[in-house]
């Protein structure tokens, strides 16, 4: 699904080093689907006890203090967090969970490398913003205030009322993919001839890199 621009209230998740084990606990990784992870994301912080893949939603006890359970953030599409968000395990299920909760944008000072790519491969925009700006966004979403942020993918700008516009970095090819919702495999297969040509000379130079022939 393309992402061009978005205005949404922000869910402030005030934690650093949020790892993908917490975002999507182990018991949900046995699903072989790409969808349906929304109710499981952040389980240890959202619910009173751990469930499993077949636990009915009605049997879950949501923790009122968790931001994800607060009605004022119910329609939020932008998640705000601290440094090193999405560190740890490569599990893409973490991104599927955040996406299935309805988020399209995550703002943090830094991200785990694998997680960052996983986001972009699922139409979710990870925005790296300097620590000072992130701090200001947290300050503006404290207490009962609800902060609204606008994101424009084509100009790579983020705007908040009362603050100067902020620019974020995004590789042009990744920006393009977000804007048109393009399949990255199709994009690479446009270069199939170049891949084949490379492969031929690579095999001549390093024949031992090919096959599992000795079995």
């Amino acid at each position: 699904m393309p992402l061009t621009q978005l205005t949404s209230i922000v869910t402030p998740l005030d934690r650093a080093n949020v790892d993908t084990d917490v975002i999507m606990p182990k018991q949900y990784l046995k699903s072989i689907s790409r969808f349906g992870y929304g109710d499981w994301a952040f389980e240890p912080w959202r619910y009173a006890s751990a469930g499993d893949i077949d636990t009915p939603k009605a049997e879950r006890t949501p923790l009122a203090e968790c931001v994800f359970n607060q009605p004022r953030f119910a329609n939020s599409e932008i998640l705000l967090s601290r440094e090193n968000f999405g560190c740890g395990s490569s599990r893409e299920h973490a991104v599927w969970g955040i996406r299935d909760m309805g988020y399209r944008v995550i703002i943090a000072p830094s991200f785990g490398d694998i997680f960052y790519n996983n986001c972009l491969n699922n139409g979710l925009l990870p925005i790296r913003l300097c620590t000072e700006h992130v701090e200001q966004l947290f300050l503006r979403s404290q207490g009962n205030t609800v902060l609204s942020v606008s994101v424009d993918v084509s100009s790579c700008q983020l705007s908040v009322e009362g603050m100067p516009a902020m620019t974020f970095e995004l590789a042009p090819s990744q920006q393009q993919r977000l804007l048109i919702g393009q399949d990255s495999i199709a994009q690479t297969l446009d270069e199939a001839d170049a891949i084949r040509a490379f492969e031929t000379q690579h095999k001549q130079r390093f024949p031992w890199c090919f096959g599992l022939g000795a079995q």
Binding site: I114, N121, S173, I195
Partner: peptide, 18 residues
């Protein structure tokens, strides 16, 4: 280490874009 979309990408293209 890569995510599942990249697993699919490498299976289909033998390449990784990074």
């Amino acid at each position: 280490g890569i995510g599942t979309s990249e697993v699919e990408h490498v299976l289909a293209t033998q390449c990784l874009r990074q």
